[in-house]
């Protein structure tokens, strides 16, 4: 997989405070990376360093295997923290500014298509001063997508959005992933990150404390598992309840503590029970708290 973002030993100090501490990270093309961490963990600093808004105190950043120069930045679109725009310009004019800066011809149809993709095309001729917070956020997303970037960086993209807007952003990220774009997303809404990310990077006190594929990381924190069997769940409960605590949850499925799964499988196989599947129960929230506390 082609590496498009590479950080080697990157650190950032703000006077006495260390915001990032020797962070090394490589992100490949097509990944959807969720960056997690509590407030002050270094998420925004990391994203700002990748986008060139903040200069690292030490270490090296490479984008598309090149130093982070304007040519490399032309392949990145970003929405960092808040979706800010010129309040005295219309939504379409704000997008026109960004397109022009990206060396693109800002045709009306292109602007309309971009705003339509984020669901704010109806308000394209209104001055941004009159936009709601959610509309501004959508405009910010359109500005991040201007110029068809290969890497899209979204810092808290669902901030201020209503449930419909959150679902739209989820849909947008999924479609970007399908198009082969690389997406880096930071959000406090863990359930949303869980739905879209293929990889997680967890930061604490400016250091990466976990980095890996979503499935792999979540499997580490499964507290319970569901065992699905061919035989009825009542038979399984009858068989296991003598040694283990088992709960019937469906006609052919039982729930059991993760640490008991191995014993249960041994007993069930010994008793001639056919196992269809063992599904660990895990959530990003469980993983996040386990990793950051």
């Amino acid at each position: 997989m082609e590496t498009i973002v590479e950080l080697s030993g990157v650190c950032k100090r703000y006077r006495q405070r260390i915001a990032l501490d020797e962070v090394s990270l490589a992100i490949g093309r097509g990944e959807v990376v969720g960056v997690l961490g509590s407030n002050g963990a270094g998420k925004s600093t990391l994203l700002r360093i990748i986008t060139g808004l903040v200069r690292p105190t030490c270490g090296e950043v490479r984008l598309f295997q090149k130093p982070p120069n304007p040519s490399a930045r032309s392949r990145i679109g970003a929405l960092i923290e808040r979706a800010d725009a010129y309040p005295y310009l219309t939504g379409a004019e704000n997008l026109e500014v960004v397109l022009r800066l990206r060396g693109q011809s800002p045709s009306r149809s292109l602007i309309e298509a971009l705003l339509d993709r984020v669901g704010v095309a109806d308000a394209m001729d209104q001055v941004v001063r009159t936009y709601s917070y959610g509309m501004r956020q959508r405009l910010g997303l359109a500005m991040a997508l201007a110029g068809d970037p290969e890497l899209v960086i979204l810092d808290e993209p669902v901030n201020g959005l209503d449930p419909r807007g959150i679902a739209d952003v989820r849909q947008l990220i999924t479609s970007l992933h399908r198009e082969g774009k690389t997406v880096i997303i930071s959000s406090h809404l863990l359930s949303e990150v869980e739905l879209v990310a293929t990889r997680l990077v967890v930061l604490r006190d400016g250091r990466i404390i976990a980095d890996g594929a979503l499935e792999e990381l979540l499997s580490r924190v499964a507290s319970h598992a569901t065992i699905e069997t061919v035989q009825p769940a009542d038979v399984v409960v009858e068989l296991l309840n003598r040694q283990l605590n088992v709960e019937k949850i469906r006609p052919h499925a039982v729930r059991i503590a993760a640490e008991d799964v191995h014993n249960a499988i041994v007993h069930l196989v010994g008793a001639g029970i056919s196992i269809r599947a063992v599904v660990p129960e895990r959530s990003l929230e469980q993983f996040y708290f386990a990793a950051t506390t």
Binding site: L53, P87, L101, R102
Partner: peptide, 14 residues
């Protein structure tokens, strides 16, 4: 103050 400097500096222009 308006945050638009961030928008400008995110663009591929020195």
């Amino acid at each position: 103050a308006a945050g638009t400097l961030r928008v400008l500096f995110l663009q591929p222009v020195a």
